[in-house]
Computed example of a mutant assay.
Amino acid sequence: MIVVMKVGSPEIEIERVCSELETWGLTPEKIVGKHKVVVGLVGDTASLDPLQIQETSPWIEQVLRVEKPFKRASLEFRHGDRSKVIVPTPNGNVAFGQDQPVVIIAGPCSVENKEMIVETAVKVKNAGAKFLRGGAYKPRTSPYAFQGHGESALELLAAARDASGLGIITEVMDTADVEKIAEVADILQIGARNMQNFALLKKVGAQDKPVFLKRGMSATIDEWLMAAEYILAAGNPNVILCERGIRTFDRKYCRNVLDLSVIPVLRSLTHLPIAIDPSHGTGKAEYVPDMAKAAIACNADSLMIEVHPNPAKALSDGPQSLTPERFQQLMTQELAVVGQAMGRWQETPVSLSI
């Protein structure tokens, strides 16, 4: 249920309404929009009469029920106002959101060694990326595949941030690792395999760093949004949704099926920012550029693209990784054109000596 306050409502009256609703056993959450303040009500509202709430103040414009099962994640909860996730980085704040420039996240699947991760960070930064991705802990289908270097790789990510000024995004797989990863990462990633690891969702929801929530490979949109609801309900409002391809009946030519139709669908359902991962979505480097361009044309807020200095020797996901040279070409000659046409591109000085 949401309470929409009238334009110009005094702050003291908004606080009074919130305090009174708390005495009813509800949890009010104030959302400040461009023109109005909306108060989201969490709790047992099924038996409440909206008129009963409206009568508590002449400054209440209307009271509406949120029909979706994902309350906080729903567009209704914010009365149509889109949320913006602002992430502090060494080079300044970066904003994820529909009215912001497309945020590019790039880097290797796994952190392999210091030279490799620092080199990649500097090159993707020069090409226009704002964040470095790199796995310290890697979930793998086979127990014999490279699982990442673990805690020692976090130090290498910190070194890459110092060298490049990029923000860091890396995956957390275990509740026991959340605090130490949050000390290094600017954004915590929940991978597709952990989308419904509810203990982990609650844990990252109880800390302050933004969360990058990837869609499970067989998850419905409602299941994905309910996973986001776990994080939001635990107290963390900064969630970015990432489509990374879903598993269907035909995987002969692509690793997954990249569901770009999810962008307009999510726009109608949720206020949360939307990212697309064309690398996992296709599994083949030659398909990544076209799907990245298509994602921007569909109005995605962010792209996550795998880049490795030598994909043929990558310890994981080499076939879907671009070289730094191909990434720079993609950024400056292809994505920039589409992004500018969409009004979503921020010019970045590019070093040609990569």
Rank of each mutant, 00 (worst) to 15 (best):
L225F: 04
L75C: 09
R326I: 08
H35T: 12
E306A: 14
V338R: 05
S19T: 05
S164K: 10
I221S: 02
F327I: 07
Q98S: 15
I354G: 00
L132P: 06
P273D: 06
L21V: 01
V178G: 01
T175D: 07
A312E: 15
V257D: 00
Q100D: 00
T89Y: 10
D177G: 05
L330K: 04
Q189Y: 14
L21E: 02
V118M: 03
Q329I: 09
P324I: 08
S279M: 08
D99H: 12
I105R: 13
P309H: 12
F249H: 13
I60Y: 05
P289F: 10
Y137S: 11
I2V: 13
C242F: 11
L157P: 06
A129D: 04
Y253A: 14
Q147E: 07
I117L: 12
G150I: 10
K313E: 09
D162L: 15
L225D: 01
R140P: 03
F96M: 13
T89Q: 05
H271C: 07
G148W: 11
A153L: 11
V66K: 04
W345Q: 08
A285P: 05
S321N: 06
I86F: 03
S47R: 09
A106L: 10
G283M: 13
F249P: 05
H35I: 08
N126C: 06
G80K: 12
P58A: 15
T120D: 09
L157D: 07
T282E: 05
V337E: 03
R78G: 03
H79I: 08
M331P: 02
P324Q: 06
L241E: 04
A136E: 02
P69N: 09
N194C: 03
S19L: 10
R247M: 05
I169M: 15
N197Q: 03
M5W: 07
A185H: 11
V122I: 15
A121V: 04
I221T: 15
D277L: 10
Q100I: 07
C109R: 09
A106Y: 01
Q98G: 11
E115C: 06
Y144D: 12
V102C: 14
L232N: 11
K34E: 05
F198A: 02
R344N: 01
I86R: 12
S164Q: 07
G33T: 01
D186S: 08
Q189M: 15
I12D: 05
G33N: 01
L156T: 10
Q52D: 09
E115R: 15
Q54W: 01
V265S: 10
A233I: 06
M226T: 13
P50F: 04
V63T: 06
S164E: 05
A295M: 06
R326K: 12
G339S: 03
L21D: 02
S74I: 04
C254N: 11
T23G: 02
G134I: 11
V3Q: 07
S302F: 14
